[in-house]
């Protein structure tokens, strides 16, 4: 029995490795077809995949529906931009700094917010994100509404991030590392306790687990990864924009998570890829594409109630049963 599960998870990991290998091949393939432009687009999709994945860890595994993830995403971006402004261009300093800033912010916000649950938690996280948004646009030194632009991309050892393919690979590596880390965490004791808390919080509390501490740590880990995604998006567009801090950004990330599949490891990534690709295709045909997107989202709610990742999972599981 456990052998079967083991085989299954090995197979899944192999599959994941295969997908990543294919993704790594994307830049030369696009180049060969003369579609270099899409390398940059793909990098943007991967960054949103990372941000959505980090939110999914909080929502899906921690059971905390946070509606202020933009705060951490934006904080990462602004950290890189502010450091760049003061002459620190090295990714080795700026990117970890972005992670730390987002994590510290999450520690404070999470500490206050975790007293509430459900819709109250949704709204209190939104409140904190809104505070940060309004502070950012009123700060002249942070460029206010214009945001802060980066003169160059971060320096990254011998790698030239200005090259779109290189940047894409670095982003892919970040996403891969974070997914591996989350895979480890969710299968480790911490992750199991976390999921048990999600299922029955009072029982775990009764068993003597420091529930609040577990949830807070989960919140901080998710935020830290969003900080990294923020550092990447600032580099990608060479801009830290207040747009990244807006509540609509939190909403977009949440929609990605729900579309992809809450609680599935790859749910956030799948959601980001699907949503951005659909946007890209629809916007090509009509300026009224919002309506078409709305219809597609309704379809997802009613046809794939647990998200696309779970839906695909189901297809695989059925296929495996047939073997």
């Amino acid at each position: 029995m456990s052998g079967a599960i083991y085989r299954q998870s090995t197979r899944r990991r192999l599959l994941a490795a295969g997908v990543f290998a294919l993704l790594a091949l994307l830049p030369p393939v696009l180049q060969a077809f003369g579609q270099e432009f899409y390398i940059s687009f793909a990098a943007r999709v991967l960054i949103f995949a990372l941000a959505a994945t980090s939110l999914n860890f909080i929502v899906g595994f921690g059971g905390m529906v946070a509606f202020g993830h933009a705060a951490f995403f934006g904080a990462g971006a602004y950290t890189v931009a502010v450091l760049m402004e003061s002459g620190v261009a090295s990714a080795a300093i700026a990117w970890p700094a972005a992670i730390v800033v987002a994590a510290v912010l999450a520690l404070g916000i999470g500490f206050v917010s975790l007293r509430t649950r459900g819709v109250y938690f949704i709204m209190i996280t939104l409140a904190f994100a809104q505070m940060i948004y309004y502070l950012a646009i009123s700060m002249k030194t942070w460029g206010g509404d214009d945001g802060l632009s980066l003169a160059v991309r971060s320096t990254f050892g011998p790698l030239d991030l200005k090259n779109d393919a290189t940047f894409y690979w670095v982003t892919l590596a970040c996403l891969g590392l974070c997914l591996c880390l989350l895979d480890r965490i969710t299968h480790a004791r911490f992750g199991r306790v976390l999921q048990a808390i999600r299922e029955n919080e009072s029982r775990m509390e009764g068993l003597g687990y420091p529930v609040l501490g577990y949830k807070l740590l989960c919140f901080v880990i998710g935020a830290a990864m969003a900080g990294l995604a923020g550092a990447l998006i600032a580099n990608h567009g060479q801009l830290a924009s207040p747009n990244l801090l807006q509540w609509t950004q939190s909403g977009t990330l949440l929609v990605m998570v729900i579309v992809g599949g809450v609680g599935a490891l790859y749910g956030g990534a799948v959601g980001a890829v699907v949503l951005l690709l659909v946007e890209e295709v629809l916007a090509h045909y009509t300026t009224h594409w919002h309506a078409a997107l709305g219809l597609i989202l309704l379809l997802v709610v009613f046809r794939a109630p647990k998200g696309i990742a779970a839906w695909v999972h189901g297809l695989f599981a059925r296929a495996e049963k047939h073997e």
């Binding site: 940059s40 687009f41 945001g147 990608h236 567009g237 801009l239 747009n243």
Partner: peptide, 12 residues
């Protein structure tokens, strides 16, 4: 009205 979307479209 999003800078990052504008950048992506412009890039294309």
């Amino acid at each position: 009205q999003k800078p990052d979307v504008a950048k992506a479209e412009t890039e294309k």
